[in-house]
Write a protein that binds this DNA or RNA. Structure first.
Length: 834
RNA sequence: GCCCGGGUGGCGAAAUCGGCAGACGCAAAGGACUUAAAAUCCUUUUCACCGCAAGGUGAGUGCGGGUUCAAGUCCCGCCCCGGGCACCA
């Protein structure tokens, strides 16, 4: 077995150094191909429930099957795979699955571009990418593969939808969509470029209101916020902050301004400034607005809505107009004008605000522009009230109220409390909490997604498809033209349905689900992927969950992860799962850029996994993405750097193969070099183990192994066979999580059997790792002057004495007054002189 | 504007608890081997100055202050870069 792999051309003799020991050239292609074939079809990474071992669920975010794995994917999977293999070696029962986020818009675009059905396009992409996965030997249990566009999967999306509907968590309401009048179709946000259609660059996108489906995530807002406590410390602080901002909870007051059209309710966090309100402003979509203005006004309001949809709010000029009507401030009875303006959002608060230009920057900007009066009612705690005339900018800070009737002279927070209490007492308002987060719009007017399982019946209205009739299959014979509201509307055999309630003719819902629905629960399906009676067996979930480690890009910090948390809470309330949160620990890896530029297809600088594997092998590719920078940092792919790693693996391989014979014979006696190398070996094991257990800075782990290799080259001929055998064995094991092919090859060369990841992770011996003597740094006035080698535990006074006597120290000390000597045992002596 | 990260040699980086700044790798230079090259192996490589040399001296972690025997690391102020949020009332 050993000999058959080393053909003559591979061998040469290193005469000058190593006494005629044959070494082999590192031929990555041959090694990787051989093990690839050996392992094919062996189900090496199969996971099964086993209560006798601690479980470990490691998960990388499933990819969209775009056609090829690029180096960003490789980085993500190399981190997860190293961890999975390490955990196996530490005795854990590891679940490490993979799947495909296979629904989505690009498949439809591809269908339009090259007339290939989305299903076909998707499956051929999956096949290509899976081949790359296998080539890299990422340790997935492929029996558990989940492909979200398969009916076996998406029927459970539909099932969850029905559960949401039952619990009042799915509902319909009108919502605006982007509409291209040229295509006659709905556009996704990413298809809107500079306010115009991506395919018709001069056609402005309009806003149209359609009935659409929503999930009531707002019902869980407080839980989503509260349960973040369970995640603190285990999720990146940055992600939690982003989610908190996204939810955007703010406490304030709602109050009614009176008007001829009924009360106008406004929300404010600064009710303490309400005596400074000089107008009320409605969002252009506000229901009262329509009644207050004429046709010309309505046209202006509509134009505002369209313009706002496609512009970056940051560079939009504030605009508005006076309705001609007035509102009454409930606190002082003052009559103020009612305006309509583009910067007031209908989607936040009550869709109406009071404008207090003196104390709000936006209101200040708006009111200054239109000559609306500015009246200060808050003064700085130590300062005077601003005068209206020379006011150059708003004073938005808290302070002391003035000119506020009975509430004058109070600190802002006290004023807020008392004024809110008055609103509640007099019945014109109340304390209120508002959130930025909105209900999750799940409707997409698209073909390539999960059909929403309801029908519309003329007699019965919206009727859910019975569970027993799931899945509602997505038709496959379809022409994608990019025209019309949804491609599904052109498929009569899909649209024409029977009402499950009355048996009469009905129209099937043609909206499909947002693909975030697919990815909100796929990690549960991995635990029971072939179940055809339920989304999964709860018993399996309670064994594997929560996910111990989730690894993916920070770009999913908000949507995917918040939706996943929401789904878990709903599933828990249905009684399917026990955990509050799906993911115990989250790791967000940095982006990969190529030679200084963001990788993109249009730039043509995408570094493909296969190309790198071809040239250097997959072990080199994996090791390099882990070695270049710590995994959480952005990484620049530079070809030259890869060469260094390839050289390193070659060094390991050559060293091992030319010493394996000596190692097997365990010849020679203990030497000084042995002790030195053993120390280094155990220091290296300690370093690599600590990196796995704490920060995952694999760049330093790999650097440590390189140092060990450098030392081995220095002492090669001085080592005994016993120590060589020990070092080579542990080297192979330590490289296992990073370079599975090479480490397996070394393992075999050492005459050992079985996959490396099924071996036990080497333990380090703290005594062996300990340096023989302490290196003491001697400083004078903080400057390094000498080193001392002393036994560990040398008493302080001895260290002080030795330091003062050191010939390199004397010139800096002699003739000077010694003020102080600081001694840190086993570490440092600092002599302070004057 | 607000909230996070970050700024260290020619480059990627290391220094994990306030204790030798630059581990490891890339690039570069020199040497060995070779007819030659590649590959490989060995050496040098923060900057400035002194020295024939061994070696020595000084400066140095974005900038300015501070705390400390001692600061890349802690504190205050500023500059720059990256990311997220951004009319959220």
């Amino acid at each position: 077995m050993l000999k058959e792999s080393c053909c003559g051309a591979n061998q040469r003799r290193v005469i000058h150094l190593h006494r005629l020991m044959p070494e082999k050239t590192y031929d990555h292609n041959q090694i990787e191909l051989r093990w690839y074939e050996r392992w094919a079809g062996q189900d090496l990474y199969k996971a099964e429930e086993d209560s006798s071992r601690p479980k470990y669920y490691v998960l990388e975010m499933l990819p969209y099957p775009s056609g090829a794995l690029h180096i960003g994917h490789i980085r993500n999977y190399s981190i997860g795979d190293a961890l999975a293999r390490y955990k196996w070696m530490r005795g854990f029962n590891v679940l490490h699955p993979m799947g495909w986020d296979a629904f989505g818009l690009p498949a439809e675009n591809a269908a339009i571009a090259n007339k290939q059905p989305p299903c076909e396009w998707t499956h051929s992409n999956i096949a290509k990418m899976k081949a790359t996965h296998r080539r890299f030997q990422f340790s997935y249990d492929w029996d558990r593969e989940v492909t979200t566009c398969e009916p076996e999967y998406y029927r459970w999306n539909q099932w969850f939808f029905l559960k949401m509907l039952e619990r009042g968590l799915a509902y319909r309401k009108k919502a605006l969509v982007n509409w291209c009048p040229e295509c006659g179709t709905v556009l996704a946000n990413e298809q809107v470029v500079d306010g115009c259609c991506w395919r018709h660059e001069s056609t402005p996108v309009e806003q149209r209101a359609l009935e659409q489906w929503f999930f009531k995530i707002t019902q869980y807002t407080d839980q989503l916020l509260h349960d973040m406590k369970q995640l603190e410390g285990n999720w990146p602080e940055r992600v939690l902050t982003m989610q908190r901002n996204w939810i955007g909870r703010s406490e304030g007051t709602e109050a009614d301004f009176g008007s001829d059209y009924g009360p106008i309710r406004v929300f404010t966090t600064r009710v303490d400034t309400i005596f400074g309100a000089t107008c009320v402003i409605l969002a252009p979509e506000h229901p009262l607005a329509e009644r207050m203005i004429d046709a010309a006004g309505r046209a202006r309001a509509k134009a505002m809505v369209d313009a706002r949809a496609n512009k970056d709010p940051g560079d939009m000029e504030k605009e508005g107009f006076f309705t001609g009507k007035y509102a009454v401030n409930p606190y002082n009875g003052e009559r103020v004008p009612i305006w309509i303006a583009n910067f007031v959002l209908t989607t936040y608060g009550t869709g109406a605000i009071m404008a207090v230009p003196a104390h709000d920057e936006r209101d200040f900007e708006f009111c200054s522009k239109y000559g609306i009066p500015i009246r200060a009612v808050i003064r700085p705690v130590e300062g005077r009230l601003a005068l209206p005339a020379p006011m150059k900018e708003a004073f938005p800070d808290d302070g002391i109220t003035e000119n506020s009737g009975e509430f004058s002279g109070l600190p802002s927070d006290e004023a807020r409390r008392r004024m809110t209490a008055k609103a509640e007492k007099d019945g014109f308002g109340k304390a209120a909490v508002t959130y930025r987060i909105k209900d999750w719009g799940v409707s997409r007017q698209r073909y390539w997604g999960t059909p929403i399982p309801v029908v519309h019946c003329a007699n019965c209205g919206v009727v859910p498809v019975p569970e027993s009739e799931l899945p509602v299959l997505l038709p496959t014979n379809i022409q994608i033209t990019g025209r019309g509201r949804s491609p599904l509307e052109d498929v009569p055999e899909f649209v024409n349905a029977t009402c499950p309630k009355c048996g009469g003719p009905a129209r099937r819902e043609t909206d499909t689900m947002d693909t975030f629905v697919d990815s909100s629960w796929y990690f549960y399906r991995y635990c029971d992927p072939h179940n055809d009676r339920a989304p999964f067996d709860p018993k399996k979930i309670s064994y594997w969950f929560p996910i111990d480690q989730y690894i993916g890009g920070v770009e999913h910090a908000i949507l995917h992860l918040i939706y996943s948390r929401f789904f878990t809470k709903v599933m828990r309330d249905i009684g399917l799962v026990e955990n509050d949160e799906p993911v115990k620990k989250l790791f967000t890896q940095g982006m990969v850029i190529a030679e200084g530029a963001k990788m993109s297809k249009s730039k043509g600088n995408v570094v493909g996994g296969d190309a790198v594997a071809e040239r250097y092998g997959t072990d080199t590719a994996r090791l390099f993405v882990l070695f270049a920078v710590p995994p959480e940092k952005e990484m620049d792919w530079i070809d030259a750097g890869v060469e260094g790693i390839y050289r390193f693996l070659g060094r390991v391989y050559r060293f091992a193969t030319r010493n394996v014979e000596r190692a097997r014979q365990r010849s020679g006696n203990q030497t000084d070099a042995d002790r030195k190398i053993l120390r280094k070996l155990h220091q290296t094991i300690r370093k690599v183990t600590e990196d796995f257990e704490t920060r995952w800075h694999f760049n330093t782990s790999i650097a440590a192994v390189m140092e060990l290799m450098n030392d081995l080259y220095g002492e090669e001929t001085n080592l005994s066979g016993v120590v060589l055998a020990d070092v080579l064995e542990k080297l192979a094991l330590m490289l296992g999580p990073f370079a599975p092919y090479l480490s397996q090859e070394l393992w075999k060369e050492l005459g050992r059997d079985g996959p490396v990841f099924q071996q036990t992770w080497p333990a380090y011996d703290a005594d062996l790792a300990k340096e023989a003597e302490a290196e003491i740094v001697v400083q004078v006035n903080g400057k390094l002057r000498a080193h001392l080698s002393t036994p560990f535990g040398t008493p302080e006074d001895v260290l002080r004495q030795k330091a003062l006597e050191h010939p390199k120290v004397r010139p800096f000390v002699d003739g000077k007054q010694i003020m102080k000597v600081i001694v840190v045992p086993d570490k440092l002596v600092n002599i302070v002189v004057r």
